[in-house]
Nucleic acid binder design. Structure first.
Length: 294
DNA sequence: TACCAGGTTAGCG
DNA sequence: CGCTAACATGGT
């Protein structure tokens, strides 16, 4: 059970952290944050807890208002939103790289979320050959079928909203039969997911250990690709978004299109250094949501 | 109604 | 190696 207060949210000055919620939640890295036009608020689920967040500008300062408690903000959301790293300080895009500079200007404010590795793995297995609306709806069906029902109460003691579910654990999915995954819209990915669940549940692959800083991104990608249904693109996305290996640079159809169009089919990822993944997200956001190119 | 989507695999030459 | 058909399904 969880209590929230929508009327008197926690208010944090985030001016110095350079975060933009719309870009961060809409840049394609996450699938369970949804925007409510009426309240100008994002609702998301992080580690089986529901949070509402919105931005506010006052007197030239930027604030975040959230239903999280002070300790939840400090212990969970501050880290989840990766506010302790200001990318600008470490990013060093060559001046000659016009496209990347433009993408950075468009994408500035994107933060690479510290999402749960397991949820990220399954989400990006689902993502292959799917569009983003389909990915989101499929994940919601999976959560509703096998995730923990989250009970949230507003300041009046009324349950709010009616139904929300956490992401199902690896052990829960590992205990299922393939037929239990029918009718969720997973398509041929159902066996990939069941197989990944068993591998994680049996500790054949240990996602938590892969998050350790001693494990470099390429090593993590190599491990992830031992899973059936996890190729180079999905593995790079899991490493970047789930394991927080910020130098990983996933190449999907959109990025490949950019490479072919603006880099003559050859891009120098190393030139983006330790934060290449951030540049990748700038590019993805720029080309897809900011009509960069067309 | 067709076409397509933040790819991967297996099976070919 | 490199190339490519097949893959399930819902969103648009």
């Amino acid at each position: 059970m969880q209590g929230i207060n929508l009327k008197n949210p926690l208010k944090i000055d985030v001016t110095d952290y350079n975060i933009n919620l719309e870009k961060t939640f809409n840049c394609g890295q996450c699938f369970r944050w949804n925007y409510d036009n009426q309240t100008n608020t994002w609702r998301g689920i992080v580690r089986n807890k529901v949070y509402w967040i919105r931005e506010k500008e006052e007197n030239g300062r930027k604030f975040i208002e959230t239903t999280a408690s002070k300790s939840e903000w400090n212990k969970i959301l501050f880290t989840y939103l990766d506010l302790d790293t200001v990318y600008e300080d470490e990013l060093d895009i060559p001046n000659s790289d016009k496209f990347a500079i433009n993408a950075q200007n468009a994408g500035r404010g994107i933060k690479i979320l510290r999402q749960e590795p397991w949820e990220t793995l399954i989400s990006f297995i689902i993502s292959q050959r799917n569009n983003i609306p389909k990915i989101k709806s499929t994940i919601e069906r999976l959560c509703k079928a096998y995730g923990k029902k989250l009970e949230v109460y507003n300041e009046n003691g009324k349950q709010y909203p009616s139904e929300l579910y956490g992401f199902p654990s690896a052990s829960v999915l590992a205990s299922l039969d393939i037929s239990d995954l029918e009718n969720l819209g997973l398509g041929y990915r159902d066996e990939y997911i069941l197989n990944a669940a068993k591998a994680v549940d049996n500790d054949i692959i240990n996602l938590d250990e892969l998050t350790f800083s001693q494990v470099n991104g390429n090593k993590a990608v190599e491990q992830l690709m031992t899973l059936k249904g996890v190729g180079p693109k999905v593995a790079n996305c899991v490493a970047l978004f789930g394991l927080h290996k910020l130098d990983m640079f996933p190449i999907d159809v959109w990025i490949q299109r950019i490479i072919d169009t603006y880099y003559n089919g050859n891009i120098n990822i190393e030139s983006y250094g330790k934060l290449a993944g951030v540049v990748q997200q700038y590019m993805f956001y720029y080309i897809k949501f900011n009509s960069g190119g067309n």
